[in-house]
Design a protein around this nucleic acid. Structure first.
Lengths: 116, 116
DNA sequence: TTAATATATGAACAGTTATTCATATATTGA
DNA sequence: TCAATATATGAATAACTGTTCATATATTAA
């Protein structure tokens, strides 16, 4: 069954692409991670957390929106391993989960020729 | 107006977070870029293109789904600067836009402790 | 224990998005 | 020019997701 007119040349690349395709379940994990940082509201939270730990109301102050909305978004970010949190008295302090998060942010900005 | 009980300590971080927050328009661009690589179908396309240039029907073969769905997704990826394309005869050959794309993919996998 | 502060969460609605279907455009060979 | 192959796209529907509102939980101070 012919697929296109350059079968011979690209057959190998197609075979390799199929062979190296991660399992659906792994693709879903990566997709979920990216999805969690793909909404403006959540992305703003990450930009805010570049400064270090912040409690929820300070995040609300920095990114705008309601306490409830920010809290929902923080839960999603945490569930996807993008941020982590610890309690300190009445406050929950959030921070970026690890250095990968900041690195991905910076790569994306470089790709888009941004500088912040 | 008191926000929480550690005002003094974190006041500075909050101020810096607000001062360094990119403009809404820039946040939206970054968000759009991440959103375009946050769906399993589109992510599979990127994984396939790690092997190099592939025509549409070969991509369809590698990632599954219909020709139409893949074509719609490719358009989105291209509009967001994630992939590029060139015509060769009857075929359109797609490839990753630049090295940042692969780097982001690899960082994400590292973050999730994947190895592919 | 009671009041105040900080954070989290369930349900519902509104807006967004992926897929499908039918069809259109573009290139090539006969 | 006609047929075949490869790719793209508009419209419609179905599924998903973010926000809001009301309320719940947790910590601290009095």
């Amino acid at each position: 069954m012919k697929v296109c007119d350059h079968e011979a040349e690209h057959e190998l690349a197609t075979q390799k692409a199929k062979a190296n395709m991660p399992a659906d379940e792994d693709v879903a994990r990566v997709a979920a991670a990216f999805k969690s940082i793909s909404e403006p509201c959540r992305l703003k939270i990450l930009f805010a957390l570049r400064q270090g730990e912040l409690c929820v109301l300070h995040i609300v102050e920095a990114v705008g929106g309601t306490q409830s909305a920010v809290s929902h978004q923080l839960r999603l970010l945490k569930a996807n391993g993008i941020v982590k949190s610890r309690r300190e008295g009445q406050n929950i302090l959030y921070s970026l989960d690890d250095e990968h998060v900041l690195a991905v942010l910076e790569l994306a900005c470089a790709h888009l020729h941004c500088h912040f």
